[in-house]
């Protein structure tokens, strides 16, 4: 058997292991990915709206953003957290590193699997959002592009997660949430349309560095074309670039951790 065929088979087996484990831990996985976005959607979309503190229609802007947030952030978290633990105390990853496939492929598998979890979490937000908000006024012809953004967003989240997970030393994991995740959540244009930030230029510039902004803008622009948004091609280009840059960076860090 050739080395490539053997590696492909091992890659599929390693991915199969992760899918199997997720299946067994489904309830805790669902809790992990749904509680936060559902709570955000409920408070900002439902409660504040009913109390009259947000304009009617804000919930409509929020929903595509929450789907984007889930795709990007769940992918990021599900790649980075297990990796930090794997490389420190559990050492479980050693079994995968000694499987007959190149170590680069193990890194790609981690990224891809995180992205799959992100995509799954994002898809779950569709029915939940519909149920919570009652009705949505989406432009259905924009759905394929929205899905494209969601896929790219999950992959970008996995790539950033690989970079963070392989770069953060285990004793720093507790500050990871404060200094990495929280800023990403609030600078990703998932709660506001980026294109309308003209009067807050510095913040607009800050948001442009967050890959999540392009997922949110891409999805919102496709589903709610009436809301000011970034040109679709900018979103796709930025997300592809984010995947490539963070993917390469993450693989580099991963190799540095896995090989001496």
């Amino acid at each position: 058997m050739t080395t490539t065929a053997r590696s492909v088979r091992a890659f599929a087996a390693v991915l199969g292991r992760d899918v199997f484990v997720t299946g067994r831990e489904l309830p805790s996985f669902l809790a992990q990915v749904l509680v936060q976005p559902v709570a955000l959607l409920f408070i900002f979309g439902k409660v504040l709206g009913q109390l009259g503190y947000t304009q009617p229609g804000y919930a409509q802007i929020l929903l595509p953003g929450m789907i984007a947030l889930n795709a990007f952030l769940v992918a990021l978290q599900n790649t980075s957290f297990p990796l930090v633990l794997d490389f420190s105390y559990s050492r479980e990853i050693e079994d995968r590193l000694l499987a007959p496939l190149p170590i680069t492929w193990v890194a790609v598998e981690k990224m891809l699997f995180g992205a799959l979890r992100g995509l799954f979490a994002a898809l779950l937000m569709f029915p939940i959002g519909l149920l919570m908000l009652g009705s949505v006024a989406w432009e259905l012809s924009g759905l394929p592009f929205a899905v494209l953004c969601m896929v790219l967003g999950s992959l970008a989240g996995g790539a950033v997660g690989l970079t963070v997970g392989a770069a953060v030393p285990p004793r720093r994991i507790n500050i990871m949430f404060a200094v990495i995740l929280a800023p990403l959540i609030f600078t990703g244009a998932s709660q506001f349309p980026w294109a309308q930030l003209e009067d807050l230029r510095w913040f607009q510039v800050v948001c442009a560095f967050n890959p999540l902004t392009y997922v949110s803008e891409g999805m919102r622009g496709a589903l709610l074309p009436g809301i000011p948004h970034m040109p679709p091609w900018v979103c796709v280009l930025a997300l592809v670039l984010a995947c490539l840059i963070f993917g390469a960076l993450g693989i580099g860090f991963f190799l540095r951790r896995a090989l001496d």
């Binding site: 058997m1 088979r9 292991r17 199997f20 050693e94 079994d95 007959p100 496939l101």
Partner: peptide
Amino acid sequence: KVAVVPQRVNLDRSLNARQNLLFHATYHG
């Protein structure tokens, strides 16, 4: 061609004993 038994336990905690063997064998085709 090689196998390693390290000093520190690095078994897959998400799997039971038998599954640890089965998945390892699957990685190796």
